[in-house]
C-alpha cells in the first residue's frame, strides 16, 4: 500500500478497481494546518481526467500492470504505434494517453508498454533520452536578466531551457522524469 507521502507525478494507483496515473501533483498546507495532497488523475482505461485532494492518513493500492518490452515504430493518424519485440504484435497509444511522454519518443526506441488485459494503456520511458536541438536563437551576451540560459526546441517539438552554449543541431540528453536538460551528448 502507498501512503500520501508516496504520491508523486507518474505514480499508478487503483481507484475503484481501475488503474489511474497521477499526471499532476502538488503538496499544500495552509499555515499550521493539515497537509493536503492535490492530484490530477487520469483513469488509464477511460482516459478521463479529474482532480482529487487527499489528506494524510489515506492509503492507496498500487496498480500493478503488466509491462511488455516494445519498440516505438512511428506516428500516424491513429496515434503512436509500438511493436512487441517477441510477438511482433502492434499496439497504438493516442497522443492524449501519452501526454508529455510523446515528446520523448524516438523511432526504434525500446520502451515498456503497460497493459490492462490485452489493451495498451500507458508507457514507461527510459529515464534519459537524447534528442537533437532543431531551433534555438543564439544567446545574446549581456542579457543577464535571462541568466545564462535560453529556450530551445528539440526534434519532437518539445521546448525546454538549455545553457547558452547549446547551438542548433546539438544532441542533448533530457531527463524524462523532470523534462529538464542534463548535458550535451558527444557524437
Amino acid at each position: 500500500m502507498y501512503s500520501c507521502s508516496d504520491l508523486k507525478k507518474g505514480l499508478k494507483v487503483l481507484i475503484d478497481g481501475e488503474p489511474h496515473v497521477i499526471v499532476q501533483y502538488d503538496f499544500t498546507k495552509p499555515g499550521k494546518g493539515q497537509s493536503l495532497y492535490k492530484c490530477k488523475l487520469r483513469n488509464m482505461i477511460t482516459g478521463s481526467l479529474f482532480d482529487r485532494t487527499y489528506r494524510s492518513g489515506e492509503s492507496f493500492e498500487p496498480a500493478s500492470l503488466e509491462e511488455r518490452d516494445m519498440q516505438y515504430l512511428y506516428q500516424d493518424d491513429s496515434g503512436h504505434v509500438f511493436m512487441d519485440k517477441k510477438t511482433y504484435e502492434q499496439v497504438i497509444l493516442t497522443e492524449e494517453t501519452l501526454g508529455d511522454d510523446k515528446y520523448f519518443l524516438i523511432d526504434n526506441m525500446d520502451v515498456e508498454i503497460l497493459m490492462y488485459g490485452e489493451r495498451a494503456i500507458g508507457i514507461s520511458l527510459p529515464n534519459f533520452v537524447n534528442l537533437r536541438v532543431t531551433q534555438s536563437d543564439p544567446w545574446v551576451k549581456g542579457d543577464t536578466a535571462a541568466g545564462n540560459n535560453k529556450p530551445a526546441t528539440v526534434e519532437t517539438g518539445y521546448t525546454l531551457q538549455v545553457p547558452s552554449f547549446v547551438d542548433e543541431g546539438t544532441l542533448i540528453q533530457i531527463d524524462t522524469r523532470t523534462g529538464n536538460y542534463v548535458t550535451r551528448v558527444k557524437e
Binding site: 543577464t144 541568466g147 545564462n148 540560459n149 531551457q161 538549455v162 545553457p163 529538464n180 536538460y181 542534463v182 548535458t183 550535451r184
Partner: peptide, 14 residues
Amino acid sequence: MEQNWQLARKRETL
C-alpha cells in the same frame, strides 16, 4: 564532463 547545468544556471538567482 560538462558542468552540472541545473546548478550552474541558478547563479543569478543565488
